[in-house]
Design a protein around this nucleic acid. Structure first.
Lengths: 209, 209
DNA sequence: TATTGATAACTGACCGGTCAGTTATTTAGA
DNA sequence: TCTAAATAACTGACCGGTCAGTTATCAATA
């Protein structure tokens, strides 16, 4: 078979490769899990050979690490933006927080990352720790602190603030996991922003004195 | 090397082997995931040789199937028991349902099974479908129907019953996943029965007119 | 009761395929 | 023409699955 004339067999694009490999790896890891994902698949989806991957990453685990850590970054930004907003009443904060998170969850591949963290937490505890320490504890702790402050002002009924916070954001996580797990099976999906709006309003009614 | 006198090298225990192998497989699959779990590990933990496993199961996938399906059965029983209980007011039903589930979640390895279903749903869609059709849809649908009925009686405010149901039970799922994922990392655990009691009471306050 | 023969549960060494990682070679691009 | 990005063929370890041989157990027989 003759080579196609003029079509170069590859391009040298050192700057773009890492991101493209991570993007491809995110898809394959999300579909298969870490162990079942094959580097040949990742390479093919990134449009390179397997050997090329090793020009940019030392091991399969390093690629996985890059995928998971890249999933933290944008959410960190959102969290910081929310914290920067002036402290309003707790109901306003709760509405803003959940709507923002619902939006993020609906428009980003957050679900795939969460699924990977859950699935591989035992095999890669450091990655679970990164997520826990840098994203989950700040988010959960921030909401809990806001609830505690509102309780001190008498705006919210007594009760464990951390449990209140968990009750507030859990449906969002479940919705994201649902989309990853059961929607591909043909299950009826959840409209996350709608679900969360109803949930927040209902829960807030129950939380105020 | 002389054989230890009197100590038989193995016992013939055909009846007990399958359950012991499934129990060992549950542990290993839960820790490593399907692909990374090695049959030699499962065999060692079950106290048999790898060859013995193949006297009872045809493939690795068959073992995984047995593990996940064995996780459905006890919960089906609980669900049926709840459905058999007389239809009380919705608040009573909600309290009974969540307390029962919190108890189950605290005392059984439900979390490990859920984690496996989430992690391997793409690789084994049939197993995800078993869980979805036999356990999740009946549970979610039952609670939704009870909510709709209560709404028709004017006991619960308007709103999507399925979203209400999701808001009710999500913290339980998140708590179970949390225990699997972040508690081994050193994260502060949740007391599920306590969490759910506070959550149900709060949410019910918000759901009644 | 002791011995023997038949059977099936069980073992563990082995085979073949798969795949992470390596390297000799080719080619784009300056 | 030089260099480094990229390829593609290659290696070796690992692991699911197999099977020839071993051993526990029990029934038949002396």
């Amino acid at each position: 078979m003759p080579l196609p004339a003029g079509q170069p067999k590859f391009r040298r694009r050192k700057a773009d490769r890492p991101d493209e490999i991570v993007a491809a790896a995110f898809e394959v890891f999300g579909e298969k899990g870490f162990a079942a994902a094959r580097l040949d698949d990742i390479a093919a989806r990134a449009g390179v050979s397997k050997g090329a991957i090793y020009l940019y990453f030392a091991t399969k685990e390093d690629i996985f690490q890059a995928v998971v850590e890249q999933g933290v970054a944008p959410n960190l930004h959102n969290l910081a933006a929310l914290a920067a907003a002036n402290p309003q009443s707790f109901p306003e904060l709760a509405r803003a927080f959940t709507q923002m998170m619902a939006q993020v969850a609906s428009t980003t591949p957050l679900g795939g990352i969460i699924k990977m963290v859950i699935a591989e937490a035992r095999n890669f505890p450091e990655l679970a720790r990164v997520w826990h320490d840098r994203l989950i504890v700040p988010a959960l702790g921030g909401v809990s602190a806001a609830i505690a402050a509102a309780q001190a002002r008498g705006e919210i009924r007594p009760g464990d603030p951390r449990h209140y916070a968990a009750g507030l954001i859990s449906p969002l996580l479940v919705g994201v996991i649902w989309r990853e797990t059961f929607t591909p099976i043909g299950a009826e999906p959840f409209d996350l922003p709608v679900l969360m709006e109803q949930h927040v309003e209902t829960l807030l009614r129950g939380m105020v004195p």
